[in-house]
């Protein structure tokens, strides 16, 4: 336990010394809320969206920040640790290499919580975005989304050999997946077929889960199943394929 605590503390310090890591996961999402919220039209109800722009975009920004964390930070850190022989070095100590993975996941889970608080807090305080009323439904959406994304990140860390490959794969996944989350074109403006496909993609389902939770108190059954299925498939894949060296 002493070793795990110390490892987690060290991983935290390292995260906070890595400007790329904390910029994209902590600063950028909050900045995006402020930028979007500062556009006057985003604070008026848009007929196409059926809501104010800032209300529409807040859950998308939240999901985006989790995606940046899990698709870029998780795989590049772990692949880098393997590439540099850090995991190998740990495997000849009494604590073994698995704990550094746990420490990384702990750090990323905490960062996800902090980002959530910052994004929702900024949106609520500065732009009157309504906070989730059903905490349980929101928590379920949060856990499923972050769990599913970290499983994808771990899976990437399992199959990719170099940090360069990890970064490229992160970009290759992030931009198309964010399309279905509705960051470029609101889902409401997509053709029906495309919008339906989107609901079954990881980030499309994640945004849906948060919107469901806000509208009805709970993510819908089908969304829960989609998110859980991704988490299980990639989680099991990662567990089977992950190599320490």
């Amino acid at each position: 336990m002493r070793a795990l605590n110390r490892l987690t503390a060290v991983e935290f310090k390292l995260f906070l010394r890595d400007p790329a890591a904390y910029f994209w996961t902590l600063i950028f999402p909050v900045a995006l809320v402020v930028i979007i919220g500062s556009v006057p039209s985003s604070r008026e109800v848009s007929p196409e969206l059926g809501a104010r722009g800032i209300d529409y975009y807040t859950p998308i920004i939240l999901v985006m920040s989790f995606a940046l964390l899990a698709l870029f930070i998780t795989p590049t850190y772990l692949v880098g640790y393997r590439e540099k022989g850090i995991l190998r070095r740990l495997s000849i100590t009494p604590v073994g290499p698995a704990r550094v993975l746990l420490a990384q996941l702990a750090v990323q889970a905490v960062i996800a919580v902090v980002t959530t608080v910052l994004v929702l807090g900024t949106a609520a305080v500065a732009f009157d975005v309504k906070l989730p009323s059903n905490v349980l439904g929101f928590l379920l959406a949060f856990l499923l989304t972050v769990g599913m994304l970290l499983a994808i990140g771990l899976f990437m860390a399992s199959v990719l050999k170099t940090t360069k490959a990890a970064t490229s794969a992160g970009s290759a996944l992030f931009f198309p997946l964010m399309f279905f989350a509705g960051i470029y074109v609101p889902k409401e403006m997509l053709p029906d077929a495309l919008a339906t496909i989107g609901d079954f993609t990881p980030l499309g389902a994640a945004v849906l889960a948060f919107n469901d939770a806000a509208a009805t108190g709970m993510p819908s059954g089908i969304t829960v199943i989609v998110l859980a299925a991704y988490a299980v498939v990639f989680g099991v894949g990662a567990a089977r394929l992950f190599r320490w060296e």
Binding site: R6, V10, K13, R89
Partner: peptide, 25 residues
């Protein structure tokens, strides 16, 4: 064991590495 081709994280400081590894034993 001191291994060939094993490094530490770039931003980890010497004292931190020492303290961390001491906590393993």
């Amino acid at each position: 064991m001191q291994m060939q081709q094993s490094a530490m994280p770039d931003k980890l400081r010497v004292a931190e590495a020492m303290e961390l590894y001491a906590s393993f034993y």
